[in-house]
Nucleic acid binder design. Structure first.
Length: 566
RNA sequence: UGGGGAGUGGUCUAACGGUAGGACAACAGAUUCUGGUUCUGUCAGGUGAGGGUUCGAAUCCUUCCUCCCCAACCA
């Protein structure tokens, strides 16, 4: 009997809303969502959560999800970003039903604006930026009406058409919604709908010199795409009345199909040891603190991809953090546990020595060299095996030898015997040091009867080490990463300090490693488990004969815990 | 001090008036040719606080406290 138990997984609050809407037939059984990024930066893990929600929920209820570029501000946006966004969404495993751009709606947006003007719901205001701010008041003082608030509809229409025609200089006039200058919700104090900006737009070129603002464009775009559930993050919660207002002014449904879309807000993702704001991420890149948007230390989708994360792991993470309305900070440990789970099941095993220490087997002749056949995965024989050469001259991990063995030490030490994985048992007979006293070589003897790794007499050998044959080793650069921010909350800095001071200068370490020969042809993007060391992915910086690996995540290290406790 | 939200183990999340459950983390043990994996078990919240309604409250009412968001011609 297969155990596909009736999964009664509880619904999150958005799914509950959708289910209720489906049950009531509100949208005729239709679910339509959208993922609306602004193409002014690269997507990060926080967007991944949103993507999983927007696409995932639509899929769950048999609906569709659009990809819409929220490109209403040409000053900050660029095609470079739309390309990367599309690549990232696809890589995450999602397909959009429709590909749209808010800029596609510029003509419609313009028409609706004229309509609002004609209805007396919008006016052209000649106040400058500072004056508008001053007239708007603040939390404690109500706003005052703009002196231009009561212009006639015909004057407004004329002015607005001339704004569009380019008769006025940038910033000289704006179109404003006429709502309530005293409203306790600042968003409703006659918000701006259009500004004059002679900027080249990546899609519409120079066709427009006026551009709509987010609050106006977003809801209208949703309505035009007949979005049913417009899911966004919490900070837009008090924009919702405005979202609704703009759409509801279409009193006789000339522009938008009913029922109108409904905006629903959820808590954005935060991650420990990470900054997530686009602004700070941009700073990290521009200030050269990281190598680029796809630096493996970045929480960007492309950074995680380069680091070796899989789409499955990221989706699993999004699933596990859940969807709710309370501010949340997920532990990076959860993300790591997701990628470990995926790679544990799927990554091929290989041996690689990260910090090499020479080991010589003194009682083995060169001619006695042999090959061992090792499984590519301990639990999945169907993944096959590969041959690994073994001889009397090897590399082992520096960390696997201690001149003075602590308690519970299973690894190599003077006089100790360990297993070299799949090959043989060796005993450390002599420690060779350089002039400075550093251990440079271990001289060992092997038990020829243990060939293959098992003691013929059944003696217990607790430690098993990975190794690489010196003569056939592939040299590679391995990049080891630590969090960019040692502190859980990078923004929690002492008085008068900047978050930059919390940056870990040692977050990247490059080492020269020795790999088993089968890794020679590894292709960019391939992921492996280097046994006992962690999961590693081939970096695009790799060149023929000079592979570069990124450590995605280490293996859990219970020895480190034991030792830490003393 | 205006408006809008939110408070459940260390973290995230469930419960929809009826035994506070799960995941991650942590701890202990077993297995293991990866100190990985796997398995078993343990730990840990009376639900921000007080009051009320009720046979029964995380869920309902009430007062208070704390935290987050909002005063761009950004999104």
């Amino acid at each position: 009997m297969t155990s596909d138990a009736p999964e009664t997984k509880s619904l999150n609050f958005i799914e509950e809303i959708m289910e209720a809407d489906l049950a009531s037939g509100k949208h005729g059984g239709r679910i339509q969502t959208r993922f609306p990024p602004e193409p002014n930066g690269y997507l990060h893990i926080g967007h991944a959560k949103a993507i999983c929600i927007d696409f995932g929920m639509a899929a769950r209820f048999g609906g569709k999800c659009n990809l819409r570029m929220d490109d209403t501000n040409p000053c900050t946006e660029d095609v470079e970003y739309v390309d990367s966004i599309q690549e990232d969404v696809r890589w995450l495993g999602f397909d959009w039903a429709g590909e749209y751009y808010a800029s596609d709606y510029f003509p419609l947006l313009y028409d609706y604006a004229e309509y609002l003007i004609q209805q007396g719901k919008a006016y052209v205001c000649d106040l400058n930026e500072a004056e508008i701010r001053e007239y708007r008041g603040n939390f404690h003082t109500p706003g005052r009406p703009s002196p231009y608030r009561d212009r006639s509809a015909s004057e407004n229409l004329d002015l607005f058409r001339r704004m569009r025609a380019g008769e006025f200089p940038d910033g000289s006039r704006v179109l404003r919604a006429k709502i309530d200058v005293q409203h306790p919700n600042m968003n409703l104090r006659d918000p701006l709908m259009y500004r004059i900006r002679r900027a080249h737009h990546h899609r519409t070129g120079d066709a427009w010199c006026i551009y709509p603002m987010y609050d106006y464009a977003h809801g209208v775009s949703d309505a035009l795409e007949t979005i049913t559930h417009s899911i966004c993050t919490l900070e837009f919660e008090d924009h919702r009345p405005l979202y609704d207002w703009f759409l509801e002014q279409d009193v006789d449904a000339r522009f938008f199909q009913r029922p109108l879309p409904r905006q629903i807000e959820f808590a954005r993702l935060n991650l420990t040891h990470t900054v997530m704001s686009k602004r700070r991420l941009l700073q990290l890149v521009q200030e050269g603190i990281v190598a680029g948007w796809d630096d493996p230390r970045m929480p960007t989708i492309c950074g995680l991809r380069r680091r070796g994360y899989t789409p499955e792991a990221i989706r699993s993470f999004a699933e596990r953090v859940g969807v709710a309305k309370r501010d949340m900070v997920a532990e990076v440990g959860l993300l790591e546990s997701c990628i470990r789970e995926d790679l544990e099941a799927n990554a091929l095993r290989r041996m690689a020595v990260i910090r090499p220490l020479k080991l010589t087997i003194t009682n083995m002749a060169e001619a006695e060299a042999f090959e061992v056949e090792l499984a590519n995965h301990p639990d999945r024989p169907e993944l096959g095996t590969r041959k690994v050469p073994f001889s009397n001259t090897l590399w082992i991990e520096q960390d696997d030898f201690r001149e003075e063995a602590p308690k519970k030490w299973f690894r190599l030490a003077p006089g100790a015997e360990v297993r070299l994985r799949g090959a043989a048992l060796v005993r450390c007979e002599e420690v060779v040091k350089d002039a400075a006293g550093n251990v440079v070589e271990l001289r060992c003897t092997w038990d020829p009867a243990s060939k293959g790794g098992n003691a013929p007499d059944g003696r217990k050998v607790k430690g098993t080490l990975h190794w690489v044959n010196a003569a056939t080793a592939v040299e590679a650069e391995v990049r080891l990463y630590e969090p960019l921010f040692p502190a859980e909350d990078p923004m929690d800095v002492p008085e008068g300090q900047d978050w930059h001071q919390g940056i870990n200068p040692g977050s990247l370490e490059r080492v020269k490693a020795k790999l088993e020969p089968s890794l020679a042809g590894a292709e960019v993007g391939q992921r492996f488990q280097f046994e006992r060391m962690g999961y590693f992915a081939v970096d695009p910086d790799s060149r023929p004969g000079a592979p570069v690996f990124n450590r995605t995540v280490s293996l859990k290290d219970s020895w480190a815990k034991i030792e830490a406790k003393g």
